[in-house]
Design a protein around this nucleic acid. Structure first.
Length: 264
DNA sequence: ATCGGTACCTGCACGC
DNA sequence: TGCGTGCAGGTACCGA
């Protein structure tokens, strides 16, 4: 489900919780805690006020009033929902002095972690795609020895790009997903940098892409999926040239591309 | 140090 | 109707 635009939309939709106080935290599925102690977490969280909620790539980090941090990752199917009823896949329930936040995740690839210090995993991520300079971006391309699709998905290169937006950006830049990064010339690299920024910006404006189950914390779907040019369009005609869109697997992930518009 | 393959889960669509 | 297969927006971990 969630890549940068979806996580950004979720973060914006839970902003009303900033300034609110956590009354109780209930954890129903411990897998989500990745080894964290549920009782200790609940005790540390109770009474804390949310100072700030920020997004780092696909990670959500809430800063609490005592300087501790609550980190949330939505994985593939994670949802944060304000209010509503707990369901089969509701794994955590945060009750605030005003409002309730539920974490729902059918595949359980998401996680919730409590940290006394800023989480190291988040600190190790690469730059934000909407902030990275072209020079940094190009230096990253030249330094790696892999296929461009793999690099775009690598969160230490850029944080937040996932399978949908990698495919969409590569199409817009006219680059084949299997292209080796070191062989991409500067003009193409610049096109790719621009394409990443544009596609993410447009997707945020559309509230993200709702393929099957993504919704924001108010239950609203995104509508960027209607603007996808290659992702999920295998066999359908390329919107630029009419050639059927193809699907190849790169690093175990589906990649959708136009064989005519995207040369290696 | 980097890279690709694998594992982790559930649900859905499909063909038989 | 049910069963097997393959696929799905994610990252961590392992061995080469």
């Amino acid at each position: 489900m969630p890549e940068l635009p979806e996580v950004e939309t979720v973060v914006r939709s839970i902003r009303p919780l900033v300034g609110r106080r956590i009354v109780t935290a209930e954890f129903r599925n411990l897998r989500i805690l990745r080894g964290g102690d549920p009782d200790r977490m609940a005790a540390r969280l109770a009474g804390r006020r949310v100072k700030e909620v920020r997004r780092y790539g696909k990670f959500i980090v809430a800063t609490l009033d005592d300087g501790s941090y609550l980190m949330i990752h939505l994985g593939m199917t994670g949802r944060l929902l304000l209010g509503g009823d707990a369901g089969k896949h509701t794994h955590a329930i945060f009750t605030f002095d005003k409002g309730v936040l539920m974490f729902d995740d059918s595949r359980q690839f998401g996680c919730i972690e409590f940290h006394e210090q800023f989480p190291a995993r988040v600190a190790r991520l690469g730059p934000e795609p909407l902030e990275v300079t072209f020079e940094e971006f190009a230096a990253g391309l030249a330094r790696r020895k892999t296929r461009i699709k793999s690099l775009l998905l690598n969160q230490t290169f850029l944080r937040g790009v996932g399978n949908i937006y990698a495919d969409e950006a590569l199409f817009r830049a006219g680059i084949h997903p299997m292209a080796l990064t070191a062989r991409i010339r500067k003009d193409r690299a610049r096109k790719l940098h621009d394409a990443v920024v544009q596609v993410l910006t447009e997707a945020i404006e559309a509230g993200g892409s709702s393929i099957s189950d993504y919704v924001d914390a108010e239950g609203r779907k995104g509508f960027f999926q209607i603007h996808h040019r290659v992702y999920g369009r295998t066999g359908e005609p390329c919107l630029a040239c009419g050639t059927p869109i193809r699907r190849v697997v790169v690093t175990q992930r589906s990649s959708h591309f136009c064989p005519r518009c995207q040369k290696r």
